[in-house]
Design a protein around this nucleic acid. Sequence first.
DNA 1: CCGACTCCATCGAAAAAACTGATAATGTAT
DNA 2: ATACATTATCAGTTTTTTCGATGGAGTCGG
Lengths: 298, 298
Amino acid sequence: MRLDIEALRVLDVVIEEGSFAKAAARLHKAQSAISYQIKKLEDQLDVTIFDRSSYRAELTPKGKALWVEGRRLLQQAERIEKLADHYSEGWEPHFDLVVDASLPMEPVMKAMKVLVDREIPTKIQVKVEAMRGVQKRFEQDKAHMMLVKDYHPSPQLKPVPLPEVTFVLVASCHHALAAGERIDLNQLLEHVELTIHDSSEESTDRLDEHQFGGDRVFFMHGFVSKKSGLKMGLGFGWMPEFLIREELVSGELVELDYEGGSRSSFTPLLVYPTDQPLGKAGELILQQILSEFATFKP
Amino acid sequence: MRLDIEALRVLDVVIEEGSFAKAAARLHKAQSAISYQIKKLEDQLDVTIFDRSSYRAELTPKGKALWVEGRRLLQQAERIEKLADHYSEGWEPHFDLVVDASLPMEPVMKAMKVLVDREIPTKIQVKVEAMRGVQKRFEQDKAHMMLVKDYHPSPQLKPVPLPEVTFVLVASCHHALAAGERIDLNQLLEHVELTIHDSSEESTDRLDEHQFGGDRVFFMHGFVSKKSGLKMGLGFGWMPEFLIREELVSGELVELDYEGGSRSSFTPLLVYPTDQPLGKAGELILQQILSEFATFKP
DNA sequence: CCGACTCCATCGAAAAAACTGATAATGTAT
DNA sequence: ATACATTATCAGTTTTTTCGATGGAGTCGG
């Protein structure tokens, strides 16, 4: 590599200042050091950058073209240095967040918006997964934080509780079960159940705690499609209450009168590893997500 | 500037090779020199790039992010070096060609196409001007070559003749002059003359040699619009023969029976400065243009 | 036209940076 | 357990960079 950033910087300053001597002054160097650097650059690139035949050294066309390219390199160098500065100020290069699909996305989105607006140097990625897929992705990607419904505890993982989420067992108002009273398990099992496809499992043989185990179970790929399946009367199923509030009010979806209980609540958790302290971005995200969830009303 | 290309190159090789020692071998340096460069980079950027706690040094996330950025810088550095190599091989950074609008563009375009297809490193610009504007632009832009109908000779300018171009005095077949026989100057001056706007003049008070000096002269901004003006019967005027060959055959435009002569030929010139020898691109362009003009049949 | 000034190149000496080779500490593989 | 691989460190050497001084050439202002 016969190119030297320092030499390009000298070239840039010489051109800006208009003379070797002035550049030397600005760079706090002797004028001979400037001569040396420029000559070195010319020798190494084998290109005459300055025409010295007249009084003041004048840029040759080739010199000018190289200068233009050199400035781009200098800018890239500055970017790298700024990046390094950010890192030593405590910003982490990346921050990966995994979120359980059954949690409300609005507070997460709001928190992200705040971070984006602050133009922090950390690159943030958010991935949404379902059920066991959340922790699986968290571990696979070595992510920095996850918002989960449930997880395998570990001494290196610190959980922070988030506001409770309620699930409701519902079906379309036109569904056979909608009118049923004191429905028992056997009655339920006669109908199609809609549930979410566990994004961690290839062969779906395990059951979610919220799954009844009938013969006909339809696995949807998210609560959006599950909700539309429910609304069109395809079957019954559990839904986060905040997602179907409107449909419950309008009566489009109705809460089933299931004898085993039609409501189920859980406390979602914000989880992050403690073996590595959170960086600046991590702290910010932590605070922001907690604050958004605290004020979140669906 | 606390960034050093050499250090980034060492970092890159270390990561590619997987160990300091192997990188040292590939770079023909001692292993301690690699340690030194990496440590220097870490100190200067104040970022831990490698985690040395395990046996082999492992990239930290920050280190990886810096490496990715560093590679972009290395690529830019390589581009600059390649550019410099091209320059010392004799390629010039830019080549500016000015062409008179009354010359056929086809051979020029063909020549340019050949150059472009060869992917030469020189950036080529072609500018089309009219009349005195050609040489004016040539001098103003310090262009490297011009194709002109006429120019002010100078000892530093070398002219090379190109194939003759013929101008024909024409008008629409529906124009009053079309049917005239042995038309004299006074008859001509009773009609609107179409001519090309000299791109060098602000106030158009000078006359082209091909201009009769009637009261009503319309200045067009190129032969394309002049031709359409002629075809719609707006007036009469001189046109390069190669541009109106079809219209003459079809009879849409007719050659006037002017007593001063309805045809005028001139030898266009390819002109370039001799004080600076042509670069590789210049030589190529010279050869290519001459060869394209030599084989050009309109 | 002269003297003061600015421009840049060059040179020897000095300082700084980079590298070498050897050694040590630690970990891996067999 | 032995041979080998990996990285850090250190003293000494080589190379690069800088300094300060000098000189020739061009410019500026009277």
